[in-house]
Design a protein around this nucleic acid. Structure first.
Lengths: 233, 233
DNA sequence: TGTCTATGGTTGTATATACAACTAGAATGC
DNA sequence: GCATTCTAGTTGTATATACAACCATAGACA
């Protein structure tokens, strides 16, 4: 039983939604219809629909049926977004300045966080992201070399580490911490702000199926960036 | 079938975890043990355990059993949490100082945000929340009087507006904005911080089934509070 | 015409059962 | 003593079945 049957059914419906064959508001086959279509028991069909509901793709109503959710689930701010896309979606020009990019041995804490042995070489990048000519984000990132061996060879002037890493090691898990901080002089000058202006600091650890991928500290000037989100139910 | 049986079992285990009868790492009764204990079928017991796993309270391993998760899941920051519960869960004493509590006419913008007519009387509260004797949150809240007519009569020295509102108008939707800011002198002194120290400001609009309930601005000293979260898949 | 009552279809809950995959520890054989 | 095999217990998947709660529609009835 390589992939469970309910996963197959789930994937089938999910792809129909993604490809537009099923549009928001459309009715999805009922549990019994799926039973016949895939030759499974009702509990199995049900499990597929339930999983899609948990993911926010479907809305099920007793007596009525299952329908494709009107609003695709809003990217919670927990979702790891790509700042280049964000900037371009706002209609501005994105560019990045790479300050630092090298391999260095992991100290005790870094090793623990990345789940590697202390002293192992890890990758370190330091990048400032710009919206037009205004610095928008300071990105300090440590990368588990086992997960992305080619990391240092990438060109991050146009793409972003985020985009690259999600390609080579699709993330399955992430933890975040969000704080308001003041920053040291080096960062302040890179972001072109006063040392006394408050910044939003996001510390993020990401996992792929095989383990910890990366450790990132993202710092935004408080007056140029905020996090937003909208949740239903 | 008022409350499903699996909900009962889930609640039972959840309370055991919350009360410390079951500690992180502890083993939870197996599916079969729960079957006997609650006189239900295995699928029902299983469903309770599965729900707890989805909530991040348990970790289940084939061949081994189900165990209380080491890390209590951090509420997604999208989730509207009750600061009183948060403080008490950390084992500290919660108290609140009510600075202001009255009804006043809605101006243009407030009316638009609360979806009421300009000039309508709305409720306004200003509360500082303490962890032990340290100010932890400045809460400036506007409430749609149609949703909670008794709002001004409540005693918020022990409970919180949050808790009260979620009782009288269970929320179905919320939108958030999170920023890093500096605060004015009045707020700084109420929070007992320097005017130059960065703060985390959360602006939150909440809906119930019947419409917009409330508009809150929450301000936390940057060095005393942060938002955290962990997402899987 | 309008109201009420079945009826069929849907999801929600629950049971009893079966087999597969995995783990730890005990029993066995060398 | 050591490695291997077996076994009991656990979770994961799947089936077949049953009844309850809910909804929209069609039909009966006034």
């Amino acid at each position: 039983m390589a992939t469970p049957r309910f996963e197959t059914i789930k994937a089938h419906i999910e792809s129909q939604i993604n490809q537009g064959d099923l549009r928001p508001g459309d009715r999805v086959p009922s549990e019994n219809q799926l039973c016949e279509q895939f030759d499974v028991s009702r509990m199995t069909a049900r499990r597929a629909l339930q999983a899609l509901t948990d993911d926010g793709l479907l809305i099920r109503t007793p007596g009525l049926g299952s329908f494709v959710a009107e609003q695709r689930p809003v990217a919670s701010m927990m979702e790891v977004r790509n700042i280049a896309d964000e900037v371009q979606q706002r209609g501005h020009r994105y560019r990045a300045e790479i300050l630092h990019m090298e391999s260095c041995p992991a100290d005790e804490q870094q090793a623990w966080l990345l789940n590697i042995k202390p002293g192992t070489e890890l990758f370190h990048s330091l990048i400032v992201h710009y919206e037009d000519d205004l610095p928008l984000q300071w990105e300090d990132r440590l990368v588990n070399p086992a997960m992305a061996p080619e990391y240092l060879q990438q060109d991050f002037s146009q793409s972003t580490p985020n985009a690259y890493l999600s390609q080579v090691a699709p993330l399955t898990e992430a933890s975040h911490k969000i704080e308001a901080v003041l920053v040291e002089e080096k960062i302040a000058s890179a972001l072109d702000i006063d040392r006394m202006s408050p910044c939003l600091q996001i510390s993020r650890r990401t996992w792929s199926a095989k383990g910890v991928v990366s450790l990132a500290t993202l710092i935004h000037p408080g007056d140029r960036y905020c996090l937003g989100g909208h949740v239903k139910q």
